[in-house]
Structures are given as C-alpha cells and as structure tokens.
Design a protein around this nucleic acid. Sequence first.
DNA 1: GCAGTTGTTTTGAGTTACTCAAAACAACTG
DNA 2: CAGTTGTTTTGAGTAACTCAAAACAACTGC
Lengths: 146, 146
Amino acid sequence: MLTDVAPDRQEAAAHLREAGLKVTEPRLAVFGAIELGEHIDADEIFRRVTRELPNTSLQTVYGVLAALSGAGILRKIEPAGSPALYENRIGDNHHHLVCTSCNAVVDVGCVVGEAPCLTPSETHGFQIATAEVTFWGLCPDCRALT
Amino acid sequence: MLTDVAPDRQEAAAHLREAGLKVTEPRLAVFGAIELGEHIDADEIFRRVTRELPNTSLQTVYGVLAALSGAGILRKIEPAGSPALYENRIGDNHHHLVCTSCNAVVDVGCVVGEAPCLTPSETHGFQIATAEVTFWGLCPDCRALT
DNA sequence: GCAGTTGTTTTGAGTTACTCAAAACAACTG
DNA sequence: CAGTTGTTTTGAGTAACTCAAAACAACTGC
C-alpha cells in the first residue's frame, strides 16, 4: 500500500534540499505538523511532532523552526502579546487579522489599493525591505459572544 | 525660582486625573522619563525613574506602564524580537520603521494614499478596530556600516 | 484637616518562551 | 563506506514579564 511515502514529505524534502539543508526526520515532522492556513506556536508543533516522533526535544523544534523560517520554508509571525506563530503559506506577502479577544489569526491578502504596503510617507533614510500589516479586531465568534 | 514645578508634571497629572487615575510620584516619574519621539523599554524607564525616585520597584514600573498605556496616555509597541517599547506620542495613529540590524525605531506618518490602513481586502467577518503597520529595513547608520 | 475607602506600590515568588553550549549522533560527499 | 559537517539531544540558563499578599498613599466626604 506504500502509505509511508506521503506526498508532503517529498515536497518538504525538496524544499530542504533546495535550501541546502539536510533532510532529517524532525524537520519533515515539523513541516508536516503545520496544516495549510494554520498559525500555530512552537509548543503546539512540539506536541504534534512528538506524537509521531516521541523523543524529539522542544529545543530541536525551536532549532528546526529557526532553520525553516530562516530558509523561507515557513513564515514566523510575532503578534504582540502572544508567542511566535508559524505558518506554511510562504512566497506571498500577505497580512494578518488578529482577534483582540481570543487571539485567533487569519490570513488576509495585501491591503487594497496599489500596494501602499511598501510606501511610508517619509522614509527617514531607511532602506525599506518589507512592510508588515496587522489588523486588530473582533473575530466573528467573539462578536457573537457579546 | 520654583524649579520644582515642572510643566510636564502638571500635564502628566492632568492626563492622569482625566483618566480617573490617582496622581502618584511613580506615575509622574515614568511619564517624565520618556522624551518626545523616543521608544524605550521598561528596563530603561526603570533605570531613569530610579535615578529620580530610588526605591521604585521594577514591578511598579510595569504596573504604571500598563495603567498609562491602558488609559491611552502612553502607547505600547511590541516589535517582533524586542521587548515592548513605550512612547508618549499618542492620539495620532502613526506607524513605525524598525531597523533590522540595530533595532532603532522611528515614527512615520500614516501610509500614503487615502488611509488604506483600515481596509484589508477581505475582513473574514472581523470587526476591525485598528491597523498596525511596521516597516522593516536598514536605518541610515546601519546602511553606512556596510 | 482628618478619617475612611479604595486604588497603588512594594516585596517576593513564579512563569513563559525562549536561548546557549557541549557532547552524541546522523546526512550527505567522494 | 569512511569522513566531514551539519543536527539533535541533554541540560542549564535567561529575559521579560506576571501574580498575589501585605503595606501604604491619594482622593472623598465630613
């Protein structure tokens, strides 16, 4: 039945090789632990990884996350007030909507208008590389609770 | 000479009373410790406050900062990778430019165009309250070092 | 101007989310 | 398949807060 050769593992391995990183079990497990569209923290990733690979340490998870986000395979976001979150949607510069009540995070495409994202009104001599936009508000569920 | 009656203390006291907060020495000292245009962390504020009010505890500084930013007297920003910073420029919704090399932070007016800040392309049912924009890049000093 | 109430500050401990370093180990290279 | 180099493990350590109880100080009304 060959159930062992999951397609995402192949994809992950390719990403790793492309970045010049060694293909290891913990790295494949971390990559596999993050579903598309999710935003999860190191602790939750660790929990999922250890289900599959029981003697992986939390430090390894941190190391893998640093390697993968450094290589651009994962994206790390750090919303104010919560631990760092990781997502596997990369390549596009999308932004985030964060619920001020439950901390839920969802992706949102670039701001409307012609990419104003990269144009502050005055640059103060900075050489700007990226713009990060975070929208704060109440998610549908939390609105319903009031 | 009446040097004791600094004008910023009066202003700070007025802000506090307006917010229904008691006027105390630590609060005035914390407010006075942050210069206009600065972005400093709790530790640096603590260092400055203790110069003037030696037996203030760090916990008090945290408490004061929470009270003042909660009341809108100070603004708290939390750039990824550094401790929370506080600034006393409030009321306008300006954004920040952060140096990826030395972590310097400067203010920047709202994004160009007609306030696209509050309009993500899809809201996903969120009731959006604020938009936060952070520009990342190299500050003039760090560019000069390369 | 003073007592009472309520909000602040102090003191002390505890926690979360990481980070660092050394030694054991496992991937890729030739 | 041996060697090299990058990873992972193990273990310790830290920064930046947060919580709780007791001591204290601001404002209120008398």
